[in-house]
C-alpha cells in the first residue's frame, strides 16, 4: 500500500527531525567556575571595624614565588586561589617590603556543577593563621569556599595604632 509506505517514511523523518532538534541543546558551559577565597582588610578604630585599603600590595603563593597574584596594587580586598592538590596553601603578602605569610588549612571535596561545566573543588576551611609581621590577626568568616563571586571568606585585621594609612 503506497500510502502506508509514505506514512512510514514521513514518520521516520519526523522522528529524526524531532531527535535532532531536541539534542541540539548541547550546551556550552555558560557560567563562571570561579571559586577563589576572598580576603578583606579591616582595622579597628575606636572599637569598630573599618574597611581598610592597603596601598602598594603584592601577593604571591609560597609554592609559586615567580608568579605574582597581585602586583603593587591598592586593594580593599583580594581573591586568591587555594591549592586543590594540597590541604594547605600559604600566601605571601608584601606591603612596603614587609612580608607576612598567611596560611590556610582545609579539606577538599569535588562538587558537580553541570554536565557542560563539569566539577570544581569545594574547600572546607579548618584553620587560618598569619605570621603577625603586618597583620594583627585573621578571622574565618565563611569556612566554605565554593562557586562564588567576590565573597568574603576571611578578614585580615591591621593593628589599630599602626595602620598603614597613618604612615
Amino acid at each position: 500500500m503506497e500510502l502506508t509506505m509514505r506514512n512510514i517514511v514521513t514518520a521516520f523523518l519526523a522522528i529524526l527531525l524531532t531527535a535532532a532538534i531536541t539534542s541540539c541543546g548541547e550546551d556550552e558551559c555558560d557560567q563562571s567556575l570561579r571559586n577563589l577565597a576572598g580576603f578583606a582588610f579591616y582595622s579597628i578604630e575606636e572599637g569598630t571595624q573599618v574597611d581598610s585599603v592597603i596601598p602598594n600590595l603584592s601577593i604571591y603563593a609560597a609554592a609559586q614565588p615567580d608568579t605574582l597574584l597581585y602586583d603593587s596594587l591598592d586593594r580593599e580586598a583580594v581573591y586568591l586561589p587555594l591549592n586543590p592538590t594540597q590541604n594547605q596553601t600559604r600566601f605571601v603578602f608584601v606591603i612596603d617590603s614587609i612580608v607576612d605569610t598567611v596560611s590556610i588549612d582545609y579539606t577538599r571535596k569535588q562538587e558537580f556543577v553541570s554536565h557542560p561545566c563539569g566539577f570544581i573543588t569545594r574547600f572546607q576551611i579548618t584553620q587560618s593563621r598569619v605570621s603577625h609581621s603586618v597583620f594583627d590577626s585573621i578571622q574565618t568568616i565563611n569556612p566554605i569556599v565554593t562557586l562564588n563571586e567576590n565573597e568574603e571568606h576571611f578578614r585580615l585585621y591591621l593593628p589599630p595604632a599602626d595602620t598603614v594609612a597613618d604612615r
Binding site: 609559586q64 608568579t67 597574584l69 586561589p81 569535588q110
Partner: peptide
Amino acid sequence: DVMIQDDFW
C-alpha cells in the same frame, strides 16, 4: 576520569 580546571595551579 574527572578533570578539574585550574588556571593557576
